[in-house]
Computed example of a mutant assay.
Amino acid sequence: MHTLWKGAISFGLVNVPVKMFAATEDKDISMRYIHKECATPLSYVRKCKSCDREVEWEEITKGYEYEPGHFVLFEKEELDKLSSEVNKEIKILDFVNLEDIDPIYFQKTYYLSPGDTGTNAYNLLLESIKQTGKIGIATVSIRSKSSLAAIRIVDNCIAMETIFYPDEIRSVAQVPNLPENANINDKELGMAKMLIEQLSGPFEPDKYTDNYRSALLEAIQQKIAGKEVKAAPEQPKTNVIDLMAALQASLEAVKPKAEGQPKAAKGRGKKSKETVS
């Protein structure tokens, strides 16, 4: 894997040199814009409207629009001085329980390996987090973007998850038409809970696939081979409108699957967590 960042984790006066690697990868299929008439890929230019010409990268700087049409400009060196990235430090401020962090805060996961020195310090931090069952909350700056981060263990590796600052999370009060006083039919609620129970089990990520990506890859291969692209057959649609009837039909649909499998033991879903133990 390609090293994205080199620095150190600090907690108290302990310094742990680390290298950072992306833990995830984007599997989206990249498409380019093509001119239909001649099948030529389109290119994009950086053009200045005032000078009416293309602008080279060395002529470009960054600016903030504080009023319409008015900007304050910053050179790269000025922004670097403001960024904590120059410290190359993941500074742990607190240790908390993972369940205290709402999933809405999580952004992207990175793996951290020991640096060229400090393997003992890395192992010490890893084992300490494991045995205490805590998650470190740290500050970090990557590519001039400052964020909070959660330091945890994934399969015997220290991992860092960047997380949003509280003021970056929008309030649910901005969401329109949320019910204030829900009036739920007890029988419908019971059936809905029964349906949830029938569909419940341990989290098994390998059973989930990106159906759209698979279909698109197949369509690409068909086009390369000069074949007609075949659309997937449409799923049968139900005309169930009544909520109670929909719940009943849903329960009937999952019954064969549920009856053919042993009931998941209580707490079984916890064993596959990639969190600290």
Rank of each mutant, 00 (worst) to 15 (best):
G201M: 07
E197A: 15
C48F: 06
Y122T: 09
F164Q: 11
S10I: 03
E56D: 15
I104C: 02
K19S: 12
T3I: 02
K223F: 03
E99H: 05
L73H: 14
F21V: 02
A173I: 14
K62T: 06
S50K: 13
A232R: 14
L247Y: 09
A225N: 10
Q261G: 05
K273P: 04
Q221A: 00
S141A: 15
D28C: 07
V55F: 08
L82W: 01
P179G: 02
S83R: 08
T209D: 15
M191V: 03
A215C: 02
I92T: 12
L217N: 03
T132C: 13
G133E: 06
F106P: 03
Y165L: 13
V240R: 04
K273V: 06
I241E: 13
A22P: 10
M31Y: 10
G267C: 08
A264G: 10
T238M: 02
Q235G: 04
A159L: 01
V175E: 06
D26S: 01
A22E: 07
V254H: 11
A192Q: 01
N123S: 15
Y44P: 00
A249H: 08
G269Q: 05
M20G: 04
K266R: 07
S128D: 02
T3Y: 01
G118A: 10
F106L: 13
A173Y: 05
D186G: 12
I137C: 04
T162G: 05
T40W: 05
I196S: 10
F106K: 06
S214M: 09
T209M: 11
E59N: 15
L247T: 00
K270Q: 12
K255C: 06
A249L: 14
K207D: 11
L82F: 01
W5C: 00
I9C: 01
T132G: 05
S171H: 03
Y105E: 09
